[in-house]
């Protein structure tokens, strides 16, 4: 039995405000979970994440792997009979996890996102080779997956030089902190 503490709905109110999504319409029918292709990497199913938020179990949900493994493919919300934008809820949970500085369950995925945005901030476009090199360096793991990297280079799937935008000034505007 879960005893709900006083103010347990604080989390759900905050996530609702951040995402603009009314996930309390969730029927827990599990259509989302049955449709999700990535359950094997998740500790909680998508509908369970919604439930954790509803119950106000903040630490559990913000430290879950699910919020990072979700790629936002929209398969879940396309199957949802209540049309709940679950990926948008995941976006808000990730944002809250970062702001609160909780333990990130999937640091590799976060590092990957950071490296992607670094190349976008530098060039205005992503540069796959640099993203992968820096990601592997940070992970201190250059050797695993080497075969795939070499195959990609051989088949020229990784451009050596970045594609850049001309108007650099707008990047400052986009990435203003």
């Amino acid at each position: 039995m879960i005893k709900l503490g006083h103010g347990h709905d604080k989390l759900s109110r905050e996530i609702k405000k951040l995402s603009g999504i009314n996930f309390n319409a969730c029927l827990h029918c599990k259509c989302c979970t049955n449709a999700c292709p990535f359950l094997e990497g998740m500790d909680y199913h998508p509908n369970q994440v919604i439930r954790l938020v509803q119950l106000g179990l903040e630490k559990k949900v913000l430290e879950s792997s699910t919020i990072w493994v979700c790629v936002g493919c929209n398969t879940c919300c396309s199957h949802c009979p209540m049309a709940i934008d679950i990926p948008a809820v995941m976006d808000s949970l990730r944002q809250m996890a970062l702001e609160q500085g909780v333990k990130i369950a999937e640091p590799d995925i976060l590092n990957f996102h950071k490296e992607v945005l670094k190349t976008v901030e530098k060039y205005g476009r992503t540069h796959k080779l640099e993203i992968m090199m820096r990601y592997k360096l940070k992970k201190m793991d250059l050797l695993s997956d080497m075969g795939v990297g070499l195959k990609m280079l051989k088949k020229r799937k990784l451009d050596l030089t970045p594609s850049k935008i001309k108007e650099k000034a707008s990047l400052e505007k986009i990435f203003k902190k």
Binding site: G72, D91, H113, L117, V120
Partner: peptide, 24 residues
């Protein structure tokens, strides 16, 4: 002079950037 749309990474970790990139 198009720029990256933000891809999955922007909306995953930085909602301001995720909004600004498509705007440009």
């Amino acid at each position: 002079d198009w720029n990256c749309c933000g891809s999955s990474s922007a909306h995953s970790v930085d909602r301001e950037v995720a909004k600004n990139l498509p705007m440009r």
